[in-house]
Design a protein around this nucleic acid. Sequence first.
DNA 1: ATAGAACGTTGCCCGTGGGGCAAGGTCAAT
DNA 2: ATTGACCTTGCCCCACGGGCAACGTTCTAT
Lengths: 139, 139
Amino acid sequence: METFSIGRAAIDVGVSTRAIRLWEARGLIPPAQRTASRYRLYSEADLSSMKFIRQAKLLGLTLGEIKRILETRQAGTVPCDEVRRLIDRRVADIDCTIAELTRLRATLDVARCHSQTPAMDPASNGVCLIIETANPLDS
Amino acid sequence: METFSIGRAAIDVGVSTRAIRLWEARGLIPPAQRTASRYRLYSEADLSSMKFIRQAKLLGLTLGEIKRILETRQAGTVPCDEVRRLIDRRVADIDCTIAELTRLRATLDVARCHSQTPAMDPASNGVCLIIETANPLDS
DNA sequence: ATAGAACGTTGCCCGTGGGGCAAGGTCAAT
DNA sequence: ATTGACCTTGCCCCACGGGCAACGTTCTAT
């Protein structure tokens, strides 16, 4: 069975070696097999597992969420329902974030173009009217 | 001159006492005056300064950016040009983030509704087809 | 006056997902 | 044998505080 060093694995999976060690420390992947000199060794199955993690991360799941998915799967259960719930939550979260950012963007636009935003009088106590007169709509 | 404890200041400014201490440690506000028993004391001017920081934070500026703005102002320069640049960058950043999130949202929508996304065969080696067959458009 | 509540002080560890660097051990090719 | 590329662990760093500990101070009520 072919094995891969952490560097090869990182290139193959498309992440950094740091990420792989972090995933191990966080329990997303089991402690790697080691050579006599303590080098980590990975199998193709390990690479597949890491590719799943990378893919899940690209979808915006956190390491904690991914860990739970993997644990569910390892317990023999198909985690698709859980995944669907996570994705639903994530979508709701994204919508919320987009709405917030859109509001903030509008506020910044208004502030920046605020009728020739008078420059702060250097002698006054204020710092910058662009900021001080802005009216954030965010909660 | 009326002075305020850190708790009063926090309430008046609308932030936590932790935040105020952090801003001091980060150099956004000068080390507070102290009572004989080392309690921090703030003047109205201090409160104004903190309100500026809070306002700038609401606009999405980082503590580092705010610090530089305050330093510019303290050097006697009106920081409005700098602020305008920061806001421009922030707006560009927001647009970029919104675009990314929109793409991700679309990917998640497709993945979730992926024609009755077949449940993973518990005997296979995969984890979850919803994730494995998703096709993130993000870079 | 004194007890206890409410406030203040420092300090440390936690999160997210690693990056950067250091000081060293190992492997491959020349 | 040496050199360069790789690996190991460990520690501190990023933003912005939250939570808790252990302890000192001030205020309030009885």
